[in-house]
């Protein structure tokens, strides 16, 4: 058993992803408290350039093997389980991404370590982790401990500052031999999204609309408002899923991350996966009929009202 904090490094196309830097920064602070080390675990092929960006870690454990050139849930799992078993860290931090979800729960099942998902805060009390998790799409917060004082947490992107984990330096690297891999899931290709008609990451004004809009026909009113504001329409995931607007207009975890001067959120509840994509906007104004909608927790201004009424009134006001 150790007091180390392990961070699983997520990388794609030769770059370590931002959520990993968030976790490294947090792990470093936590390790300073536990007296253990912040250890970055990187699985990849030709990992040196990746390792060179992991200066925030006290130590790096690297598995460098062609089998890890791309992410595969089964081979990651096969490699990680023995590492976590051997080190028995105080805490394993994994980003709450698609791959993170795969890996963390597989690890939990295989090692018996408990898993707290959708974490937005991780602290220590009496040397043991206490995790704040989001439940019910962000409508409830829970404070959770691990029964035996150690466990795994998957952390929502945007919970900690990215910069805190971006440090120069070359931590010692411990290289592990090629592990047993599990080839039952094989990477085939990475598919880039189709380019959209509008690049929502470049718009200064986004009128963003969610399931609260009700009918597809109502989008017209929203388009009119966007035009009146000189901006574009973006959407939450369900509207892109329904094909009402292209995927390239989707804001959030599996969509795009946007930072406009104005983000006007209409009928969007503010699920953690949506907030991930827009909480950095300069000015957030939310309109929702539910006074408890989590979107209001990141908004600067809010109105509890029907979005159709407000959209029409605002379009009229801007025209007149």
């Amino acid at each position: 058993m150790s007091d180390d904090i392990l961070v699983l490094v997520e990388h794609r196309a030769g770059t370590v992803l931002d959520p990993t830097f968030e976790l490294l920064g947090r792990a470093r602070a936590l390790a300073a408290e536990t007296g253990g080390q912040a250890i970055a675990v990187v699985l990849g092929s030709g990992v040196d350039p990746l390792v060179a960006t992991l200066g925030a870690a006290d130590r790096v454990i690297a598995v460098d093997d062609p089998a890890f050139a791309e992410f595969s849930p089964s081979s990651y799992q096969a490699a990680l389980v023995p590492i976590v078993r051997d080190r028995s860290p105080r805490l394993v931090l994994v980003a709450n991404t698609g791959p993170g979800m795969d890996v963390a729960s597989g690890l939990s099942a295989a090692t018996g370590l408990a898993l707290a998902a959708y974490a937005t805060g991780v602290a220590l009390e009496g040397g043991a982790p206490v995790v704040t998790c989001q439940l019910y799409a962000g409508k409830i917060d829970a404070r959770v401990r691990f029964a035996d004082g150690r466990g795994i947490a998957t952390v929502v992107a945007g919970s900690f500052p990215v910069e805190s984990g971006m440090a120069a330096g070359s931590p010692p690297v411990e290289r592990l031999g090629p592990p047993a891999t599990d080839g039952r899931i094989r990477f085939k290709a990475l598919l880039a999204p189709e380019a959209g008609d509008v690049d929502i990451t470049r718009e200064t004004v986004l009128v963003s609309v969610g399931r609260g809009v009700g009918e597809q026909e109502n989008l017209e009113l929203v388009e009119e408002l966007a035009t009146a504001l000189g901006g574009a329409v973006s959407v939450s995931r369900p509207l892109a899923d329904a094909g009402w607007l292209p995927r390239s207009r989707q804001v959030g975890k599996s969509g795009l991350k946007v930072k406009p001067r104005l983000y006007l959120a209409l009928g969007i509840s503010g699920a953690p996966e949506h907030l991930e994509g827009m909480r950095g906007a300069d000015l957030i104004i939310a309109v929702n009929t539910d006074p408890r909608a989590p979107i209001f927790s990141v908004a600067h201004y809010g109105a509890v009202a029907d979005l159709l009424d407000v959209a029409q009134a605002l379009t009229r006001r801007l025209a007149g």
Partner: peptide, 15 residues
């Protein structure tokens, strides 16, 4: 293996 110590309704419009 998780112990829920407390649940709360986040203060949504605090800010």
């Amino acid at each position: 293996g998780l112990v829920i110590e407390a649940m709360s309704v986040p203060e949504v419009s605090a800010t």
